[in-house]
Amino acid sequence: MAKSKKFWVLALIIWMAVIFLFTQLPYFTGENTSKAIFKLFAVEHDITQSSDAGSVLITAVNIILRKASHLTGFGIIAFLLFQVFRNFRFPYLLSWVLTFLYAITDEWHQSFVPGRTASFQDVLIDGLGAFIALLLTYLFSSRKRKIR
């Protein structure tokens, strides 16, 4: 195995382990991240007096951060898988399918963690993140080839 391929395989394994650990930890439940965001906004924007507006803002920021982390985290997995399988037949499709399958197993694993719930909506967001990352990889690669 070439040195660069070993690097990408190792990076992939580490990133998948990081996602597994984040899924395992109870600190990253929606309720806990909402509390952390509330503390940040309460100090920075003094929303303790306006509970309704503050609650809506905190809920919106919490959802955006959590879904953006799904998009990003699984986009990174898709990119790393593409680097590992770039010399295979249909590397984009293979990378997307494997990322989607990992997203399913991640949500299934999350269903066993106290305080966490599994959501197929999150699997779809993970798949979208993988698609976006692979699309950007394709566009960047094709642009790079045109420059040469």
Rank of each mutant, 00 (worst) to 15 (best):
M1K: 06
L10Y: 11
I13Y: 01
I14G: 05
A17L: 15
L21C: 04
L21A: 09
T23C: 12
T23H: 06
Q24W: 14
L25F: 14
P26L: 11
P26H: 14
P26Q: 14
Y27C: 05
Y27V: 09
T29P: 01
E31H: 10
N32R: 14
S34W: 13
S34H: 13
K35S: 12
I37T: 03
L40Q: 00
L40I: 10
F41M: 09
F41Q: 03
V43D: 06
H45W: 15
D46H: 12
D46M: 11
I47K: 02
I47G: 03
I47S: 06
T48G: 03
T48F: 05
D52E: 15
G54M: 12
S55L: 08
I63C: 15
I64K: 01
L65C: 10
R66Y: 10
G75N: 03
I76R: 01
I76E: 02
I76Q: 01
L80V: 01
V84F: 09
F85N: 02
F85E: 01
N87H: 11
N87D: 09
F90H: 04
Y92M: 05
S95Y: 03
W96M: 04
L98H: 02
T99I: 10
F100W: 04
L101C: 02
T105R: 10
T105N: 07
H109F: 12
H109G: 01
H109N: 10
Q110N: 03
F112H: 13
F112S: 13
V113Y: 06
P114I: 09
P114F: 13
R116K: 07
R116E: 05
D122E: 06
D122F: 08
V123Q: 03
L124R: 03
G127M: 13
G127W: 04
L128P: 00
L128T: 09
G129V: 07
F131A: 10
F131G: 02
I132G: 00
A133H: 05
L134Q: 00
L134T: 00
L135T: 15
L135E: 10
T137L: 11
L139D: 07
L139Q: 11
R143T: 07
K144Y: 10
R145S: 09
R145N: 05
R145Q: 12
I147G: 01
R148G: 12
